[in-house]
Design a protein around this nucleic acid. Structure first.
Lengths: 156, 156
DNA sequence: TTAGGTGCAAAGGATTTGCGGAATT
DNA sequence: AATTCCGCAAATCCTTTGCACCTAA
């Protein structure tokens, strides 16, 4: 069967080789935000005759075509996700690196106002929250006690 | 005279060499967000016997000491600015690359609420706006007309 | 004196690219 | 058949590091 990303590739007039089909499938099935290395691993598991250079070329091409979006969550490597129509931002768990998506419709208007105030039209924005998982109530009390003694500064 | 950053270095117990003093001065005088290459250029102009490796080592050290903050505005290279107490975010002019700072105190509470709702405590965040300079009123009308005909999508 | 800094050049990690051969349209 | 793509290895770009030599404290 034809994956969603593959369909988009065809619409854009891209030549569909076996490798590209595999990469498209991996991307279509991904629910996370894999980096190139990870995409390569997943693609190679389905078809061993794929090189990482091809993966790099594919994500670059798909980004140019607007099918993929490149993200940078720190850590030096780019991460990718399929372009969606519903805009969303990301919260990164600083302990595990896990990424949670959320929508912030309520804020876009506020951001536009800020930009306008500075003399700009808002074209796009990047909002990332870095957080730490909250513990259950009992444990949370202990954490609060600890914090009162030695408050931790903002991390990064 | 002793620059502001140099004073902070001394407070942190760093050994003040000639190179480091020069870099501290360049940083103290910067009002923008230079990358390492640019810092190197400015420092070398004051003291030719500085190597770029030293600049890399200095910014890394100063970041660890909390004197500098590393920024990533895309483009592959890190950019630096002195740590300030008033928290601020950035608006990047997509046409010129110029960076404008603004404060967003009003939003922090809202961001905390979002994080909590997702089960996290907010540790820090990154907010960047990408915008385009607004034109004067007469010209703006023309732009609006144009937009009504062919609305432009969110850029990147 | 000595712990820490510096320059240089080599090493690293992520990403791109030149090239001859291969697969798609 | 023409165009586009692929694998491989070499090349690039930004950043870090090993080593032998300085220098602030």
């Amino acid at each position: 069967m034809e994956s969603r990303i593959e369909r988009l590739c065809v619409e854009k007039g891209l030549k569909m080789t076996g490798q590209r089909r595999t990469i498209a499938r991996v991307l279509s099935e991904a629910t996370d935000h894999p980096d190139v290395e990870e995409l390569y691993r997943r693609a190679a598991a389905l078809d061993a005759r794929i090189s990482i250079a091809t993966v790099y070329r594919a994500v670059r091409l798909l980004e140019e075509k607007g099918i993929l979006e490149r993200r940078d969550f720190g850590g030096g490597r780019a991460r990718y996700e399929p372009t969606e129509h519903g805009r969303h931002d990301h919260l990164i768990d600083i302990d595990t690196g896990r990424v949670v998506e959320f929508t912030d419709d309520a804020h876009v208007a506020a951001l536009q106002a800020i930009a306008r105030q500075l003399g700009f039209d808002l074209v796009s924005h990047r909002l990332e929250l870095f957080g730490r998982r909250r513990r259950p109530a009992t444990e949370r009390r202990a954490v609060a006690d600890e914090a009162r003694t030695a408050p931790r500064g903002p991390a990064r």
